[in-house]
Design a protein around this nucleic acid. Structure first.
Lengths: 345, 345
DNA sequence: TGTCATTGCTAAATCGTTTGAGCGCATTCG
DNA sequence: CGAATGCGCTCAAACGATTTAGCAATGACA
């Protein structure tokens, strides 16, 4: 019924458990175990389908070969895709993934960290919530392998892997300007998190570089807590109030989705009456008619790098900090067009 | 640096580790530990922030408080959402979740099962791939707590939690007929899996019950391996070839998505020229204009029941089999309308 | 012949927890 | 008074692996 252990192999092979352990861990040479004995053990192990008990091994070695993945919401397109690749990549190194969603809620994040510690995960991939600084600091000081994703904490130097938010937003703004749009609005959340700051900074920088007007009133912030209906309502009001608006940038994909709805509800045509561009790709953007132009995150690269950085930390005790910033890609679809009229003016 | 153990508490409290263990496991009464000692230990544990080492505990008890979740694709909307709720529900019982995606690939599924066994998970939630029968049988015979999702293996009586595919498809067909549609097509995959069979059976049953014509040529199967472009192309050809078609049912959400594209590419208007209804909800269906009518799975209920059934198995050795079939819900949107013209004929 | 190195393996401790058996003492019963 | 019972706790084994220290046998060498 229960699994076979190293002892069973030892008994059948007529050697000690120690010898079996050495052979099975590839230390036969090093530990001077004879070829004959080695082969016999290997054969037996294969025959009996021996699987080392990870608990026992972990207890002794202090390693569980498990990493904790803390995301904002595993049901979200971006995080779900990252989770998938992270699992695949971790698997290549023999690691398994325990996951959890914070909902961007500090208390939930703390709970997850506690449980993961409790479970002795070897390393962490964390999407920090606001005010998680203290916990991250503790983790860092206890030298736990860790890498942040999607955002980082400016006060604490840590490993992280992120998209280049500044560049992504910069490119979007520049793209709109090159197409001839002039009255451009920026819709964001009230969140003060670093990735949001960098997006607006990038956007502003592009506007400035092109000497385009970008007054405060062209920036609209929607509270994170707003329901879909409230958000759509607020965006509609904003658009109505902004006379002459010809393009609008949404700082996250869910805002972009609300934006689509708002513009439709106003009876305006996306791409004709009003250009739309959003940060983050989304199924909907791809399949919508017209397609929605967006700034896409390199999901595969992000996940790949997350695991890579974590494995570096796990395998050597290098104290070097890895901060990977990956380029965002502008995906051109039909929601932004060349404004020949304006250019001709 | 390393965590504090039961021994540390014992030492500080001046008692044996055994006593500490009893108290911390709530067996103080049962094991006749005095109030004083109990309190002292509890206080110390709290003060030292003692966290039992799950590895050691697991090694001793044979329980890891971990469940394995095998889905088809964690990045898929349906599975990602199930994964989220499963995590939340499992957490309530003190369980953590290890996940993996099969891509509906037998070899990958086998690999996942092996790794999860290796990791001594206490129970399994499995989305079986085709031909996984043998492995499921083995798991069942070894009395591992297990529950299948999304589909089941008709040859092997096991626990499962599923949506009522028959009823969902039946309702969809009936709805279309009631709206006045008559020439209705069914687009599915070539997959022979049970959930697909039940959908077409339900659909066919409704057509028969209403004495509606439903010839073979109104059924189109798209190979699972087809790329998006190939699938769209095939669907377009099919629609062009089916003269007088007035409604079309897609048996999965990704087919529905392809369907939207196909219909658009043909220059037809969804809901006006051709009604569309799909199995499974999708962000896109909700946000599309017109909204796409669909048969939605009760994701929350499914996940909740999965965990519930698994916990039953884990906590008692009842041999009773739990097979939960949950109702699908028809979500009416604008892609199907009342066909007054036809009704007036 | 005695010393020393090498070879090929093993004994036993260890990781942190749980748990069945049991110990010493005080009280109660016959 | 001796035996039985209850109380409050402890001993030590066990889970299954890893790892340090070391042992017996053999051969080389002076």
């Amino acid at each position: 019924m229960k699994g076979i252990s190293i002892k069973d192999i030892a008994k059948q092979a007529g050697v000690s458990p120690t010898t079996v352990s050495f052979v099975l861990n590839g230390k036969a040479r090093e530990k001077r175990i004879s070829e004959q004995v080695s082969k016999k053990i290997l054969k037996l192990a294969a025959k009996l389908k021996y699987k080392p008990n990870q608990l026992a091994r972990g207890l002794r070695t202090g390693k569980t070969k498990t990493i904790g993945l803390i995301v904002e919401d595993i049901a979200n397109h971006f995080f779900a895709n990252v989770a998938k690749i992270v699992e695949e990549e971790a698997d290549k190194f023999g690691y398994k993934v325990l996951y959890g969603s914070t909902e961007d809620n500090l208390t939930k994040a703390r709970g997850l960290l506690e449980v993961l510690e409790y479970r002795q995960v070897d390393g962490y991939i964390i999407t920090p919530t606001p005010n998680l600084d203290k916990e991250i600091e503790i983790l860092k000081n206890s030298r736990k392998p860790m890498v942040l994703m999607d955002r980082y904490l400016p006060q604490i130097p840590t490993n992280y892997v992120m998209v280049n938010n500044f560049q992504g937003a910069y490119d979007a703004a520049e793209y709109l300007l090159n197409l001839g749009y002039r009255k451009i609005a920026y819709v964001s959340t009230t969140s003060e998190q670093i990735q949001m700051k960098e997006r607006i900074n990038g956007f502003t920088a592009a506007m400035k570089a092109h000497r385009a007007a970008f007054p405060r009133k062209m920036i609209k912030k929607i509270p994170f807590s707003a329901t879909k209906e409230e958000a759509v309502e607020q965006i509609m009001e904003f658009i109505k109030g902004a006379s002459g608006l010809d393009a609008i940038f949404f700082a996250t994909n869910y805002l972009g989705v609300y934006g689509i709805e708002s513009i439709k509800d106003l009876g305006l045509k996306i791409g004709e009456d009003l250009a739309l561009i959003s940060f983050d790709d989304h199924d909907l953007f791809r399949l919508h008619t017209p397609g929605i132009t967006c700034v896409a995150q390199p999901i595969h690269d992000i996940a790949h790098n997350l695991v890579q950085v974590l494995m570096n930390e796990l395998n050597q005790q290098q104290n070097q900090i890895n901060q990977v910033v990956l380029p965002a890609t502008l995906i051109r679809r039909e929601s932004c067009r060349k404004r020949s009229k304006v250019l001709a003016e």
